[in-house]
Design a protein around this nucleic acid. Structure first.
Length: 496
DNA sequence: ATAGGGTTAG
């Protein structure tokens, strides 16, 4: 959205009363650095760079950064550069400006190739094909194009439906000093298959196989390609073809097919395949069981899902983190809190954010918020993994349920200032809904403006809900603003 | 990027 609209929103916000200052002040603006804290110090510098790097052209960004004394004192490590590029992954002008500035800061402009690959990826994401091609030509001269670069180009082209361009890149591999071999061929085939152009991938293979030998990966790529388009017959046929080439289908081949049967809800075939794997000496692993359980969970078949987990344990396979996360989720949904706690405490050598999220959600669901908060504090002190927006969702939900909006504000502040999280589309949508329902549409409206100023498009339904509420309250300016947004912004449909 | 989570829901 244009900066013009953003300014107008800024003015609207200034006029809006009463101001729920906790939301306005804390949600969008960067957290204030606390004293004597090294990470806050660097987060301050980060915020300064970010502020300078927003701009309408890459030259503008470049000049603003170059002329800023503070920015020029920063030691610009590869890590920092990559973090900056990641921050501007949806803003190619700023990203290129930052990169240009970074180059000018180095005497012998040799940044890690990763930065250049990211730049290529950002241009591809923005579909700036000409700029991307120019960029790659420059890299070609410097001899810095790697297979990783090529992967980014191909995937961006294919992702935008320009899969002929993806094939062209493969044809030009030699120009980039790269080889046409099984690895690079597999990359092209996988790109096409992931974009559901499996037939096209087939004809590429037919054309190339006189010169390049397929390997086991090649066939797994096709099995996946067929399964993605729900053509399990062809996937099975590919297994046969694979055997014909002297490769044994592996656990990946079978798991891919099982996933396909799962999506078809054909559990007879799922269990048949499971037995076949055991018989064929490519036994199912943790991934296979997790796949099946997740699918059963989405059907709310929690007891059956637990039987699958038991089957895995019986066959002597150790669950990894993803499996145990799934198991905890299943136990929680099946109402078996103590068992979930036991898995969490005794059976997990390593945990991640999702593990905590499942446990926190479980406690909130069973109205044991003290325990949920206790786990949040544990995350903060152990620092094994950091909370994300999903960690807070169930906690926020509980506050709304209790009608404790003060606590909602406190949690939001914690998310933004302590954990540097920015609210995403679904969080905004959820909060706006709940504030409306709590008859606090002033707060909901502030979040709405907040969302727009972050360039996050609201859902059509969210606009309608809020519009209805502000009309009831006779908030005329808000009505006008929401109607304006509905006319000018491309609204998103609810995710099904 | 050769295979695998969830989610705040009246």
């Amino acid at each position: 959205m244009s900066r013009l609209i953003q300014n107008r929103i800024g003015n609207t916000l200034l006029r809006l009363k009463p101001q729920p200052s906790i939301l306005i002040k804390n949600l969008s603006t960067s957290p204030e650095p606390s004293l004597d804290d090294e990470s806050s110090q660097s987060s301050h510098i980060w915020n300064v760079i970010i502020a300078r790097a927003g701009g309408d052209s890459e030259d503008e960004v470049f000049h603003r950064l170059s002329n800023d004394p503070l920015c020029n004192r920063v030691t610009l490590s590869d890590t920092l550069l990559n973090k900056l590029l990641h921050r501007f992954r949806d803003d190619w002008r700023s990203a290129l400006g930052v990169l240009k500035w970074a180059e000018s800061r180095k005497a012998h402009k040799n940044h890690s190739p990763e930065a250049y690959d990211t730049a290529v990826d950002i241009l591809g994401k923005a579909k700036k094909w000409d700029r991307m091609k120019d960029f790659v030509e420059k890299m070609k001269v410097d001899n810095t194009v790697t297979l990783n670069t090529v992967a980014k180009i191909m995937r961006r082209f294919a992702g935008a439906g320009e899969w002929e361009e993806a094939v062209n890149v493969f044809d030009r591999l030699n120009e980039f000093g790269l080889e046409k071999n099984t690895e690079s061929m597999n990359l092209l085939l996988d790109t096409l298959c992931k974009e559901k152009r499996v037939e096209r991938a087939r004809s590429v293979l037919l054309e190339l196989k006189a010169h390049i030998k397929p390997d086991a990966h090649t066939f797994n790529i096709f099995i996946n390609g067929w399964c993605k388009t729900n053509r399990v017959e062809e996937a099975l046929w590919t297994v046969q073809e694979m055997r014909g080439y002297g490769f044994r289908p592996c656990v990946i081949s079978y798991t891919t097919i099982i996933k396909c049967y799962c999506l078809q809800c054909d559990f007879i075939k799922v269990y048949e395949m499971l037995s076949e794997m055991e018989a064929n000496d490519s036994p199912p692993n943790s991934v296979t069981y997790t796949t099946i359980m997740s699918c059963l969970n989405s059907q709310k078949e929690f007891e059956e899902s637990l039987r699958v987990a038991a089957r895995m344990k019986r066959s002597g396979i150790e669950g990894d983190t993803l499996f145990n996360n799934c198991l905890i989720h299943t136990l929680a949904r099946a109402g078996r809190v103590e068992e979930a706690e036991r898995v969490f405490r005794d059976e997990m050598p390593s945990v991640n954010t999702s593990t905590y999220n499942s446990m926190i959600a479980m406690y909130c669901h069973h109205d044991e918020e003290e325990k949920a908060v206790e786990l949040l504090r544990e995350m903060e002190s152990l620092k094994v993994c950091e909370p994300d927006v999903h960690t807070f969702h169930p906690l926020l939900r509980s506050c709304f349920k209790r009608g404790d909006v003060v606590e909602v504000g406190r949690l939001l502040k914690e998310m933004v200032t302590k954990h540097h999280l920015s609210l995403d589309e679904s969080t905004y949508t959820f909060l706006i809904q709940r504030f409306c329902r709590a008859d606090m549409c002033e707060w909901a409206y502030c979040l709405f403006e907040e969302m727009i100023s972050q360039d996050i498009a609201p859902r059509h339904r969210t606009c309608l809900l809020l519009l209805d509420e502000v009309k009831k309250k006779s908030m005329h300016e808000a009505v006008e603003r929401i109607e304006h947004v509905m006319r000018t912004v491309k609204l998103t449909a609810p995710v099904k």
